[in-house]
Simulated scan of single mutants.
Amino acid sequence: MKRVPLITENHRNVALLRLASDNPLNPLTDDLVDALGDALGRIDADDAVHATVITGSDKAFAAGADIAAMSVLNYADAFQSDYVGRNWDCIRAHRKPLVAAVQGYALGGGCELAMMCDIVICADDATFGQPEVKLGIVPGAGGTQRLPRAVGKSLAMQMCLTGVSISAQQALASGLVSGVVACERLVAEALDIAGSIARHSLPVLMAIKEAVGRSFESSLGDGLLFERRLFHSGFALHDQKEGMAAFLQKRAPEFLNK
């Protein structure tokens, strides 16, 4: 039986997905991305899981795509198979909150995978980069699109055009990550963040993720209207009634996720 290059753990309402290739650099092979997509599909269908942490090895979150596999492709192969899009799009389509916990290298596809998550925290040894230019190719999973939105045009251009990486502290200063912690605290911190998310109403969490995502896809006016309609629709939820009643009664809410 083929080994699945992904380790899954359950922590109450939080799933922990650990990229676990035989190679500690976690190259993002089709097998690994397929396994990640399958796991996220199961999580989307599991009402008991409200948030997910994705992490890698001590050496690398993921140090890029599968260069050996890419090196033999021609245009027809890449286009007809929708290489990268075929199995990466299911990560983008995941509807529940994703927290990336990055230690070591997050390069190329690894940096792009981290940026597909909703919150990124990293260890103090983390390195982020888009070195595809050194391979004679353009980033293919969001490096030229998500990175400018995260860090601004100038730094994104510098990273993509030179292939030079940035440190954890540079990633924090530029807004690529929301926090930097010691290596030994990384996963625990990510689980704490995911746990603080997961205690809330699942349909509300999903709506918030959708609304923030929409802010990158629309004008401000369209985004504000979308947000307001979600706000209005929230008054149909049991959890809205419970949340507001609990606030007025000065007690903890008991959400039923409906």
Rank of each mutant, 00 (worst) to 15 (best):
N10Y: 15
P27M: 01
L16C: 08
G213C: 02
Y83E: 02
G195F: 02
T52L: 00
D31Y: 04
A211L: 13
A141I: 08
L6Y: 05
L248N: 06
C117F: 02
A126N: 03
C117Q: 05
D38H: 14
L230C: 02
I193G: 11
R228E: 13
A68C: 06
R214Q: 14
I43P: 01
S219N: 08
V177G: 00
A48N: 09
A211F: 06
A182L: 08
G104C: 05
I43H: 06
P203F: 15
Y75Q: 04
L32V: 00
P97R: 12
A62V: 00
A93F: 13
Q103V: 00
I166R: 03
G110A: 09
I7V: 10
V53N: 09
R228Y: 14
Q249E: 15
Q158V: 02
A236G: 04
D30Y: 10
T162Q: 06
H238N: 13
P253E: 08
M206W: 01
A63C: 13
P131F: 00
G213K: 09
D38M: 03
G104H: 06
A48I: 03
H232F: 10
A168C: 12
I119D: 12
M159C: 05
L256G: 10
K134F: 05
T52F: 06
V187K: 04
I137E: 04
H11Y: 15
R146N: 11
C183Y: 03
Q145K: 10
A246Q: 11
S218A: 14
I43D: 10
R42F: 07
A194C: 02
C183V: 03
I137P: 03
L248K: 14
D222C: 03
A76M: 04
E112I: 05
T8D: 02
L248W: 08
A35V: 05
D222G: 09
G234H: 07
L220H: 13
R12L: 07
H11S: 14
T162L: 12
S178C: 06
A35R: 11
K96M: 03
M116R: 12
E254N: 02
D222Q: 15
L202K: 09
A182R: 11
R199G: 05
A182Q: 04
Q103I: 07
D47V: 08
K2M: 08
L191C: 01
G195H: 10
S201D: 09
D31L: 02
V4R: 12
D58M: 12
D30M: 12
R146W: 01
D31N: 10
A106R: 02
A156V: 07
G64N: 09
A100I: 07
L107F: 15
A168D: 06
I43T: 05
S81I: 04
S219H: 12
T29L: 04
D58R: 15
L224W: 15
S201M: 07
T8P: 01
A65N: 05
R229F: 06
D30E: 13
L40W: 13
G143M: 10
V181I: 01
L147N: 13
A123G: 14
